[in-house]
């Protein structure tokens, strides 16, 4: 209001004053308000950096205490018995790798197959039904998959080829795999959808069949996005806690095993079981710090995988 009035005033024939810079400037109160609001938003944006800093600081500070004080012979021992001072990290890493491997064996074919079908074959109406169903699968909490892995997958799937029908790394791995299917599907479907349709049309114009177009044109063009989806899935599977905690079969401690149908403790499950049950996470000596040491190892794994995955995603963006 005020601005328009001023402008009219300046232009009116009686005054005939020339425009000044002040006339075109914003009302100072209004402009100060702008700056204050911008400042508030900038502060909220910095919060995320503060969180990252705090995560790193927390992990490093406590893990440092562990690494300085621990007897390193106990970090390469027979198993994970933190309350007895035996912190064999390889027990946990091998168990994590086994469950992740099994999870990927389940999730890769199912997730990719679904993605290819939805992106290249499915009728739009079928797609519009199946995509929300997959999103529902993605929304199921991991404790539910843990329950399912322990009470259905372990006896019915793992129990059918091994003597162990209670919790095992294999049952947990299959559960984690189910959890990562929607992730692989949605990321790799996005990658295939980003392939220009002119490529498909050119291929079909040359007489290639649908399957040849899909396998030899669309998949190679989308390969970096697909690889990225698999790496993200690996990172998610390694960091998944509740399924392996519930269905992994081992509680608190574990002896070294590299056999999938045995019970085992992954990095995440070890942290969870150490934090649960008793009132205090604090135990003998370095028990509390060992938690953060395992956390740091896990953090390094997942961060590395995520950085590699984002490289792959960036590559596809450059291409087209």
């Amino acid at each position: 209001m005020t601005t328009t009035q001023q402008v009219q005033h300046v232009n009116s024939p009686e005054t005939k004053q020339p425009f000044t810079v002040e006339d075109l400037q914003m009302n100072p109160a209004r402009s100060n308000r702008q700056k204050a609001i911008a400042g508030v938003f900038a502060v909220t944006a910095v919060t995320s950096i503060a969180i990252s800093g705090l995560i790193l600081w927390t992990l490093l500070a406590e893990a440092w205490v562990f690494m300085v004080n621990v007897d390193w012979a106990s970090v390469w021992d027979i198993g994970w018995f933190p309350r007895r001072g035996i912190y064999d990290i390889k027990t946990l890493i091998v168990a994590s790798l086994i469950t992740t491997g099994i999870a990927m064996m389940v999730a890769t074919p199912l997730g990719l197959g679904a993605a290819i079908y939805l992106s290249e074959y499915a009728h739009p109406r079928v797609r519009s039904v199946i995509k929300p169903v997959l999103e529902v699968l993605a929304g199921i909490p991991s404790v539910v998959l843990g329950f399912f892995a322990l009470l259905w997958i372990a006896p019915n799937v793992v129990g059918s080829f091994s003597a162990n029908d209670a919790g095992s790394l294999a049952a947990a791995g299959i559960g984690v795999g189910i959890l990562t299917i929607p992730l692989i599907t949605s990321v790799s479907e996005d990658a295939m959808a980003a392939v220009p349709s002119s490529l498909r049309e050119a291929s079909q114009g040359l007489g290639a069949r649908k399957s040849a177009t899909t396998l030899r044109v669309v998949l190679p063009a989308a390969i970096s996005g697909i690889v990225a989806s698999l790496i993200i899935a690996v990172s998610r599977a390694i960091g998944e806690t509740m399924v392996v905690y519930i269905a992994g079969g081992a509680a608190q401690t574990a002896i070294y095993t590299d056999f999938p149908t045995e019970k085992g403790l992954t990095m995440t499950a070890a942290m969870a079981s150490q934090g649960s049950g008793t009132d205090n996470v604090v135990g003998e000596g370095l028990t509390f710090q060992s938690l953060y040491f395992v956390g740091l190892v896990l953090f390094v794994f997942t961060l590395g995988l995520n950085v590699i995955a984002s490289r792959f995603v960036n590559r596809i963006q450059e291409k087209y």
Partner: peptide, 25 residues
């Protein structure tokens, strides 16, 4: 760009690591 990269990496941090942060903080 640094903030955005940072947010993307935070989204990939396993939930249990946030538990460690919450326990500490």
């Amino acid at each position: 760009r640094f903030i955005e990269l940072n947010i993307r990496n935070l989204a990939g941090v396993p939930s249990i690591v946030y538990g460690l942060l919450g326990l500490f903080l």
